[in-house]
């Protein structure tokens, strides 16, 4: 019989401890809250799955979830094609490459709350550059503190401005890694630019684009700071995304039980969509 040496576990231990403290223990605390009710004083009452049931039936949650999917959907529809288009038009070699890359990376280097504050000031109707221009020069009524549509246009534009660069950089990395030989083969066949894009560039960029979409999905689905600073979820509840609503419930109303249940559902949705997407995209490569 073969003897197993159990000492190997020692090597895994540091990672297990680390993961336990940064993921498992906080997560279990949330699970703990989600099935109980508390009124402070460290007094807990068993609630079972009640919070989950209530939450899943509540209109408030449905609305926030709907807004969240709308937001994520819109930014993906805009950022992915736009990012690819910019990457395609960037130079592949020469003096302009580093210039383009640094310019592209700039928005990503700005802290999120600063981005929110920048766009807030930028769009103020009386002093903001964009706000003043729209209202006073063009005469278009544009005030994101009053008008839900203006608020949506602003948060979408802000996210596109902040994060399209990520898609650009990933798509660009995918593009430059395509060997010249492929373009030569296409040239010899007389393939059109569209055919080159469709049959060489897209398939060769597939993996980085999968990562780009996944990252943009997760980040935008969990977005908090920028819309919080920019609109605070308003006007009314029109830009109250899931994370903003969650913080309102948890810290505004101090309803820890429902907030914990919501966190878990939120987490499950993010995980499920990411997993489904990734599995679908990599299905071909596995067999």
């Amino acid at each position: 019989m073969k003897k197993h040496n159990q000492k190997a576990w020692l090597f895994v231990l540091p990672v297990l401890i680390l993961v336990a403290f940064n993921a498992l223990i906080p997560m279990m605390t949330v699970v703990n809250y989600s099935v109980q009710e508390t009124f402070g004083d460290n007094l807990f009452f068993w609630e079972g799955l009640g919070w989950f049931e209530k939450l899943l039936r509540s209109d408030r949650f449905h609305d926030a979830l709907g807004r969240q999917f709308l937001f994520t959907g819109l930014i993906l529809i805009i950022e992915i094609p736009l990012g690819i288009a910019i990457a395609l038009s960037m130079p592949r070699k020469g003096f302009w490459v580093p210039v383009c890359l640094v310019t592209m990376a700039l928005p990503m280097l700005i802290p999120w709350n600063v981005v929110g504050a920048m766009w807030n000031i930028f769009t103020l109707p009386d002093i903001g550059l964009l706000g003043y221009f729209m209202n006073h020069t063009l005469g278009i009524n544009y005030d994101m503190t009053q008008d839900p549509l203006a608020a949506w246009i602003t948060i979408i534009t802000m996210d596109v401005w902040h994060w399209t660069s990520l898609v650009v950089l990933l798509a660009y990395a995918g593009l430059v890694s395509i060997p010249d030989a492929y373009y030569q083969a296409a040239k010899i066949d007389g393939a059109s630019n569209w055919a080159v894009f469709r049959y060489i560039q897209i398939p060769k960029m597939k993996n980085v684009l999968t990562i780009a979409i996944l990252l943009r999905f997760m980040d935008s689905f969990n977005i908090y700071t920028e819309p919080f600073v920019l609109t605070g979820g308003g006007p009314g509840n029109s830009t109250t995304l899931l994370s903003i609503d969650l913080v309102k419930i948890a810290l505004g109303q101090f309803d820890l039980g429902p907030a914990a249940a919501m966190s878990l559902i939120y987490f499950a949705i993010t995980l499920l969509v990411s997993w489904l997407f990734y599995t679908l995209m990599t299905k071909d490569d596995l067999n």
Binding site: A181, Y199, I200, I202
Partner: peptide, 9 residues
């Protein structure tokens, strides 16, 4: 080519 160049998809 020396590398195997085919349309990947």
């Amino acid at each position: 080519h020396q590398f195997f160049v085919n349309y990947p998809h």
